[in-house]
């Protein structure tokens, strides 16, 4: 059975990779199997991890869980066209709660923490680093300053303001370039993982 599983996995892996050549029947077959099985798999996972583990097992310990269950039930009312509009209530609750929670998170982590990290001495008695550290601090403070100016929407990017915004977008693009290379390297590990499977588990060429 294990042997059959490995052959099937190799067949589907190569089927998905065949897309690199062009769309074809093998890819369509692999894609359909992948989507169908993963959709079913996630239904099972979500049922046991959410409904069963987070609600059913703890329903007597935490009365607030029934509020969530009630909102979930309201969501299912979409299936009855006449009262389907009630399903908008839980959606409104989710959207509102998400905006509120994330708003605070963004404010604390993306604004306050980063502002604090940007405030640093550049020279003088409080600065004890090397020339390299000074340059690093200058790039960090200047890059953050100009980057923030780029994201001003209510003022036209002209004159000195526009120049600062241009420095900001250049800083962002240089950062993207560095991140691109870094992320590509990490993506390679996905490819290496599948090639390792094909050559080690399926073909047995690697020991």
């Amino acid at each position: 059975m294990d042997h059959f599983g490995i052959w099937l996995a190799a067949f589907l892996t190569l089927g998905i990779y065949s897309f690199l050549y062009r769309d074809n029947a093998w890819y369509k077959l692999s894609e359909s199997i992948f989507i169908g099985i993963s959709a079913g798999y996630w239904v099972v996972i979500l049922f046991w991890d959410n409904f069963y583990a987070k609600f059913w097992l703890q329903r007597q310990d935490d009365p607030m869980l029934w509020v969530g269950a009630a909102l979930g039930f309201l969501m299912l009312l979409r299936l009855i066209p006449k009262i389907g509009w009630i399903a908008r209530w839980p959606l409104a609750f989710i959207d509102g709660a998400t905006a509120g929670l994330w708003g605070m998170n963004f404010l604390a982590s993306n604004i306050m923490v980063q502002t604090k990290a940007t405030i640093m001495p550049l020279m003088g008695p409080a600065f004890s680093g090397s020339i390299g550290d000074l340059l690093s601090n200058l790039v960090l403070v200047g890059g953050t300053f100009c980057g923030l100016i780029y994201f001003f929407f209510s003022k036209e990017h002209k004159g000195a303001f526009g120049n600062a915004a241009r420095v900001g977008i250049w800083t962002i693009m240089i950062t993207f370039g560095a991140m691109f290379g870094y992320t590509v390297m990490s993506r390679m590990s996905l490819l290496i993982g599948r090639i390792d499977f094909l050559f080690r588990d399926w073909l047995g060429l690697l020991k």
């Binding site: 940007t118 405030i119 640093m120 600065f127 300053f145």
Partner: peptide, 16 residues
């Protein structure tokens, strides 16, 4: 306001 805070903060920290 954040830009101003960064500017003043950097200046103050430079002077300890």
């Amino acid at each position: 306001a954040i830009l101003i805070a960064i500017l003043i903060g950097v200046l103050l920290e430079t002077f300890g």
